[in-house]
Amino acid sequence: MNAQAPALRDPRLNRPEPFTPPLGDNGFFQRDRAIHPPAHAPGYKSSVLRSPRQSLLSLENSISEITGPVFGHNDLGPLDNDLIRNYAKDGDPVGERIIVHGRVLDETGRGVPNTLVEFWQANAGGRYRHKKDTYLAPIDPNFGGCGRALTDDTGYYYFRTVKPGPYPWRNYVNSWRPAHIHFSVFGSGFAQRLITQMYFEGDPLIPVCPILTTIPDKDALDRLVAPLDLNASTPFDSLAYRFDIVLRGQRSTYFENRTAGN
């Protein structure tokens, strides 16, 4: 090293900033891709032409990723979490009446308050109310098949519906989806955005589903299976299933709870 060189002072030392708590920057924990299905999963044939082949570009969380849309009760209607009643025309829909409830948590175990949870599903016969679904099982005139809820202060949500049926789909000639409910969850930042599916304890179609088995991690797959929760069932009315959803952990020790409404 040249002893004549002037001492260079790191410019950052000219304006020292206080050392803040290590988890206090509102960013999110790195997503563990090993527990998610890979984009390219040839056993699920639709993924082959719809999966990026370049590496994802790693991007540290900026303000664009730690923020996300805020929803409130003003966005919802009173029947939005009641799929037994929110499309009823001349009676209740056909099928096993069930309650689905649980908490939206982050990886630190904290409940995610006031976050929007949306859900959709086939009817008891495995038919979707969708102009592109042509399965021969009939549409139920009293069942729409979608709903939504806002979590409370502890991250808790609940809704009532009928248990969806399994249905065939064109992957292999004889592929059938296990009964499932689709979930869409927001969290507090756009980097937490997640869509997943909930399955039902004991369904024999689970281990042979080409979509479920894209998940490489057995424990991660098991966490998509909701157990029967007799304690939450309503006697002589509805069985209950419990489904907790975990979003990426937030590096925050003091994040303010967001106020509802907008």
Partner: peptide, 28 residues
């Protein structure tokens, strides 16, 4: 720490839950 819930495809009928008018019905 807990582990994040695994993602699953939104599927071909994502409109039902997120944009029901595109699925062909009016509910919310």
């Amino acid at each position: 720490y807990l582990k994040e819930t695994a993602s699953q495809t939104a599927g071909p009928y994502v409109h039902i839950g997120l944009i029901p008018a595109m699925a062909g019905f009016d509910i919310f």
